[in-house]
């Protein structure tokens, strides 16, 4: 089980801030495919991953990064700090 977190419009579109996910995906992209297949709201949130960023255990990562050993995955739009 891994914790999956959503922020900003990704959170709004999916309708929850975090959930535990049972996954066999080897990479972030594989996890995204599994989530997309779940329900329309996931498919809508993950329609264009070029508009999204991902962090693995609170470090920015790429969508082709492996999930082995990862406990927390977060999906969010490009950041707008400052």
């Amino acid at each position: 089980m891994i914790d999956v977190l959503y922020f900003a419009w990704v959170r709004e579109r999916i309708g929850l801030p975090r959930e535990q996910v049972e996954t066999r995906a080897a990479t972030v992209a594989g996890l995204v495919d599994e989530l997309r297949a779940r329900e329309e709201r996931y498919a809508a949130a993950f329609a264009d991953t070029s508009a999204l960023r991902v962090a693995l255990d609170q470090e920015l990562a790429d969508f082709d990064a492996p999930l082995a050993g990862v406990r927390e995955v977060a999906f969010f739009p490009p950041m707008t700090g400052g």
Partner: peptide, 27 residues
């Protein structure tokens, strides 16, 4: 901080609220 710290801004106006999009210039 602008594009590598995980903050997201949402602006409220009379018509509703919208998320501020990141600008290419910031990247």
């Amino acid at each position: 901080l602008k594009s590598r710290a995980p903050f997201w801004k949402k602006e409220s106006r009379d018509g509703g609220a919208t998320w501020v999009a990141a600008r290419e210039a910031d990247e």
